[in-house]
Design a protein around this nucleic acid. Structure first.
Lengths: 244, 244
DNA sequence: GCTCAAACTTAACTTGGGTTAGTTCAGTGC
DNA sequence: GCACTGAACTAACCCAAGTTAAGTTTGAGC
């Protein structure tokens, strides 16, 4: 099973064997957590950059009165903030949604690798900018899209992000999170998530049973959700030859 | 009138005269736009980094069916994406809300200045991370907060951001955008923005007339909106002496 | 194969906010 | 002074999504 961080970055730049090795060296498993545990909490001082190697995690923020918003979802290969250190304290928490294996990378290791391999530095930039683009798209979803569009859009996004790290079949992927988590992420109540899933199922746009999501007709779901994958920027740099 | 970019960055690091001069040199006015014009449109290729010197601007995304979400608001001193160039095409538009004066900085100029002055590089990192933190907070607002909290929270945020560039009095600031724009930013209809403003006014939490916003009792508005300024990270680096 | 808890599902009812369709107000141009 | 325009404001009605309060399914642990 290849390193998901390597797989992810290869969607943007072609990496040499040495570059891949350098990445794999710094992204080794160092911490295992169960489902629903905190990686780091709001207010704490970050000690390393976390990379998800296995499982699903999230950024979230809890309001004083208990309301909780999941701000981002992290899939295998995702980096949680390559440059957290600049700000001294976390302004949100990181938690797991499923059991998770993390690579905890020290500040210096990231810096060194970026210094030595400029193409890796560029790939890390791409990853940061794409993360920001996803955050913006969530803003659009929460601000403008109806519940069916919101969920459909999220399914499209997560399916493509999982495909980018080789974790999908033709039309299906693992989908291991609960309806309550989906609600916290999309700003909807659990009950309404359930209603909305029922509707999407009834229209034949998705199948979702156990921990398995199937999108039988991606273009159909895409159209129903006004999903435009451009913001994911999965185009390889044309200045890098595709021939190896 | 000092350069707002300099003022903003000084909230995080203390800058030497040479550092200030270097910033001022690259952040010179190069483009003037009227209200409601586009700086750059979705799909276009960015040519420079934009810094707002005067006026208010925004990031926005327009859906096929006309719905529009304002994704971020840019105030004087704000940089629109120091590293857009990595992604080849814009996945959203930048537009003005009022007449605006921009500094258009070439990619290389930013890079050079960051290379020569490491403290400026760090300040630019801080600015990027704070922008991301603001985006996350908007996600929380749109997902969890009621209309009154949402608007109150936005007023608190914008007031503090304006104060950081010296554009407030004790309790007031310019507030030059329309209720329709507020609606597009907070995912609410214009009508409901109006109702909600009425409510906030009735509770004595804000005054808003003409283009002037007054927050007579900031702690009260803060409490009513569950606003916690920690995410703005306006703490000066403690490793830098406060004595000049 | 039984127990227990978490996750899922549903129905009935309520509410926050959207929609439609205006009126009023404040500039601006002439 | 009057027309014109864009913004601010309001009322009546409607609907998407929240809330409450169940019942049902699933699966881990024994």
């Amino acid at each position: 099973m290849p390193n998901p961080l390597v797989r992810k970055l290869e969607n943007f730049v072609r990496l040499s064997p040495e570059e891949k090795q350098a990445l794999e060296r710094i992204a080794q498993p160092t911490r295992r957590l169960g489902a629903r545990e905190d990686v780091i909490r709001d207010g704490e001082r970050p000690r390393h950059v976390n990379v998800v190697l296995e499982g699903w995690a999230c950024r979230y923020k809890q309001l004083e009165d208990g309301r909780r918003q999941v701000i981002s979802i992290f899939l295998p290969g995702d980096l949680c903030d390559p440059h957290v250190f600049v700000l001294r304290n976390m302004d949100h928490s990181l938690g797991t949604l499923t059991p998770v294996v993390l690579a905890e990378i020290p500040e210096t290791a990231i810096r060194d690798v970026a210094q030595e391999y400029p193409r890796l530095a560029e790939a890390l930039w791409w990853e940061m900018l794409m993360t920001a683009a996803i955050q913006r798209e969530w803003t659009v979803s929460l601000g403008q899209r109806l519940a069916t569009e919101r969920l459909g859009h999220l399914f499209c996004e997560l399916f493509l992000r999982l495909r980018a790290v080789g974790m999908t079949s033709e039309t299906s992927c693992e989908f291991p999170i609960t309806q309550a988590d989906l609600g916290d992420a999309m700003g909807l109540s659990t009950v309404h998530i359930n209603r909305t899933l029922k509707e999407l199922r009834a229209e034949g746009l998705i199948r979702l049973r156990g921990r398995q999501l199937t999108i039988p007709d991606f273009p159909a779901l895409r159209a129903a959700s006004l999903f435009d994958p451009a913001y994911l920027h999965y185009e390889r740099d044309p200045s890098v030859s595709d021939a190896d």
